[in-house]
Each structure stands twice: as structure tokens, then as C-alpha cells.
Simulated scan of single mutants.
Amino acid sequence: MSLLRTRSRSLLLVGGLGVALTLSSCSGGTTRENQNDAAAPAATSTATADPSATIPEGLKIAFLPKQLNNPYTDIEVGGGKEGVEELKGSYSLVGPNDASASSQVSYINTLIQQQQDVINIAANDPNAVCPSLNQARQAGIKVVSFDSDADASCRDVFVNQATTEGIGQTLAEQALKESGGSGQVAVLSATANATNQNAWIAVMQEELKKPEYSGIQLVEVAYGDDDDQKSFQQTQALLQKYPDLKAIVSPTTVGIAAAARYISTSSYKGKVAVTGLGTPNQMREYVKDGTVEEFALWNPADIGYLAAYAGAALQAGQITGKEGETFTAGRLGEYTIGASGEIVLGPPTTFDAANIDQFNF
């Protein structure tokens, strides 16, 4: 049993990213100080939760992912749609085609004009979206960040895939195992300003300072912008720049698939390992042809599903976003809100040749 699999099964993930797969990833945008001045958060801190409150039918629940037409995003928002339909609400999906820092702002403004009841957002930048999100909250709209957090001052709760620490540690363990315990490794991330990616990588870098990782050298963090072709090209560039590279760790589903595709038909196959976060359906062929030994992920559909229920619970008054409050999220069961309004989905699963055919997402 691998070290990664042991951790993924035993790690107790409590509120504390997190954590995107991309499948979907901080710079730019408004500073936290300026953001707080630009739009004060809605006055929800004094509200009292009523766990017995009934969720009304017909809630208008919108999803605003990092970008549309992204394999990971499609699965996430599909789970969100499932949840909204169970709640007998009205589901809508909007979003940009690129994952730039400010690309989501205009969509938030439109959702405010549409008088949505809930906005679920996977933030491309934690600060750039804050003024608009706080305008939404002032208008009575509940804001749930999922997958990639917005600043805590401009959302009500955050639905995290797993703890930031747990994912960062997993990435470090992947680097150790796939490199054979020593040598050069590189990270292929999403965008340079992606909240979750940056947080995971920061934990990974701290982990690599520990004695057990002394043989590992992290040579570069490259950015494919969650674009398949750019991620493919960045893989090629990394391999050319570092001829002794042992492994590429990609904490985004777009990146890991692009890296595996490049290596699978190159002379690097069997010499440079690829691992990180991906979905079984996109990675199955690369596991079976030997390009990828193992990778990890949670079920992204459950993230969107949980976000839908969290938003509805907020709008109904079952929860306010305070630590310790509980609510039930349909088929996923009961959840407790952790520190800073974080709701943690649960531990990731490790996929390899032995189990990958047991999953279909």
C-alpha cells in the first residue's frame, strides 16, 4: 500500500481547498485592504441559525465556475445541477471562457441584476471578485465559494474539496514516490493567481523542506492556465529545460491530462512520471498504457452538489456560516461548518490500475 493511499484513507479532514480538478488551479485584482474598503460584507454575523427552517422551493441558485467548457468544471456544475433539482430550485450556469483574474466580475454583476438567491463561485482570484460579491450579499444573495475560495470577507461559506494541508501533503508524497525518492521534480499548475493551486503548492513546498524529502529538488512551478494546449506546451518546455527531470506533479486536471498525453507518445515515457490530481475517465488510458502509475482526486460532482445544498441552507436560515453549525446535504449526509466558514467534502481517493475501472467520472 502506498504512502499516498495510506494518507488518503486515514487523514481526518476537518474544516480548516483549500483546494479544483482541473480538472480545473495570486496575483492581480484588488488588495485585501482595498477590497474590504470597497464593499463591506453583508451584515450576517449577528444572524441566528434555525436548523429546523424549511428550504423553500423555487430558489434561484446560480453557478459561476472558473471557466466553462472545462472537463472538471462540467462535472462539478453537473453535481450542482443535481442538487438544485432535488431542492426544486431554479438552476443557472454562467461563466467566462478563460480563467483570468477579473473575468468573473461581469457575471457576478449580471447575477445581481437577475436577483439570484444564491451565487456559487469557484474564484479565479480571491480578491478581484470581492467588491462584486459583497454587493451581491448586500442585496440579500447568499455567496458560496467552492473548489477555489474567495476572500473570507466576501462569501458566506467555502466548500472545500479537502484541507489545504492534506492536499499539499499528498502532492509532496506523490513527488517523493514518483521520483523514486530523489531528483528533480516540477509542478504544472493552472493559473498563477488560482487560490487553491497556490495554497496547495505552498504546503507542498513546506513539506519538501522536511528531512524525508531532502533528495527532492523542486526546480520550477510552471503555469498552463488551465488550457490544454498551453499545458501541453509547458510540459514540453519543462522536459527540454530539465533533461534530468524525474516527475511532473500537476494539481489540475487539465494539466495532468495534457502532461500525460505529451509523455505517452514521447521518448520520456517510462522515464518521467506524471502524477497529481485528475479524473478517472480522463486518465484511464494513461494509467493502462503505463504513462501514469497513480493520481488522486475527490468526486468533483459532490463538490457542486454540496455547494447547492449549502447555499439553500444559508438562504433558508438553517445556517449562517458560523463555525459549529450543521446542515444536511441530501445524499451526502450531515456537515459541520468549520473555522472561517469552511465546509470540507472529505478525503481524496487514490486511483491506479487496480481500481480505476471502478469509477466513472
Score class of each variant (00 low, 15 high):
Pro96Tyr: 08
Ala42Met: 02
Val118His: 14
Gly83Lys: 08
Gly89Ser: 13
Asp37Ile: 11
Ala128Glu: 15
Asp37Cys: 00
Lys88Glu: 10
Leu87Thr: 04
Ala42Cys: 04
Ser106Phe: 07
Ile119Gln: 12
Pro126Thr: 04
Ile75Asn: 04
Leu111Trp: 12
Gly58Ile: 04
Cys26Val: 03
Tyr72Met: 05
Gln115Lys: 15
Gly89Val: 12
Gly83Met: 03
Asn97Gln: 14
Glu86Gln: 11
Ala122Cys: 14
Lys60Thr: 09
Ala20Met: 08
Gly58Asn: 06
Glu76Gln: 09
Ser92Ile: 10
Ser100Ile: 10
Ala53Asn: 08
Glu33Asn: 10
Leu21His: 02
Ile108Ala: 10
Gly78Val: 09
Leu93Trp: 00
Thr22Asn: 09
Ser102Asp: 14
Asn70Lys: 02
Gln104Pro: 12
Asp50Gln: 11
Glu33Ser: 12
Leu111Ile: 09
Asp50Trp: 04
Gly95Gln: 08
Lys66Tyr: 01
Val94Arg: 05
Pro71Gln: 15
Val19Asn: 01
Thr31Gly: 11
Asn127Phe: 13
Ala49Ile: 01
Val77Ala: 02
Thr46Lys: 13
Ser27Val: 06
Ile119Met: 10
Ile121Cys: 12
Asn34Thr: 08
Cys26Arg: 12
Glu86Arg: 11
Asp74Glu: 12
Ala43Cys: 00
Val77Tyr: 03
Thr44Ile: 13
Gly28Ser: 05
Ala49Ser: 11
Lys60His: 11
Leu59Val: 05
Pro131Gln: 04
Cys130Met: 08
Lys88Leu: 05
Glu85His: 03
Leu68Gly: 02
Val77His: 05
Ile121Ala: 09
Asn34Lys: 01
Ala122Asp: 15
Tyr107Cys: 04
Gly78Leu: 09
Val129Asn: 13
Ala38Cys: 09
Gly18Leu: 07
Pro41Val: 13
Val94Tyr: 09
Asn127Trp: 07
Pro96Phe: 12
Ala101Asn: 07
Gly79Tyr: 07
Gly89Glu: 15
Gln115Phe: 02
Thr54Gly: 00
Gly29Phe: 08
Pro41Tyr: 12
Ala39Glu: 10
Gln115Pro: 03
Cys130Ser: 05
Glu57Asn: 10
Pro71Cys: 08
Ser92His: 00
Gly18Pro: 07
Thr31Asn: 04
Ser27Gly: 13
Glu82Asn: 07
Ala40Met: 06
Ile61Phe: 08
Thr30Gln: 09
Gln113Gly: 13
Asn36Gln: 14
Ala49Lys: 06
Arg32Val: 14
Gly80Lys: 01
Glu33Phe: 11
Asn69Asp: 05
Gly78Phe: 05
Ser24Asn: 07
Asp117Val: 10
Ala128Gly: 12
Asn127Ser: 15
Ala47Cys: 01
Asn70Cys: 08
Pro126Lys: 02
Ile75Tyr: 06
Ala101Glu: 04
Pro96His: 14
Ser100Ala: 15
Cys130Arg: 00
Val129Glu: 11
Ser90Cys: 05
Ser103Lys: 10
Leu93Ala: 09
Asp50Leu: 07
Ala43Pro: 00
Ala43Met: 06
Ser102Ile: 08
Ala42Gly: 14
Ser90Lys: 14
Ser103Asn: 09
Leu21Ile: 07
Ser52Ala: 12
Gly78Ile: 06
Glu76Ala: 05
Ser27Arg: 10
Val129Ser: 15
Gln115Trp: 02
Asn120Val: 15
Pro126Arg: 01
Pro131Arg: 03
Gln67Thr: 02
Gln113Asn: 13
Asn109Thr: 12
Leu23Pro: 00
Gly89Ala: 15
Thr110Ser: 15
Ala47Ser: 05
Cys26Gln: 09
Glu57His: 09
Thr30Asn: 06
Leu59Arg: 01
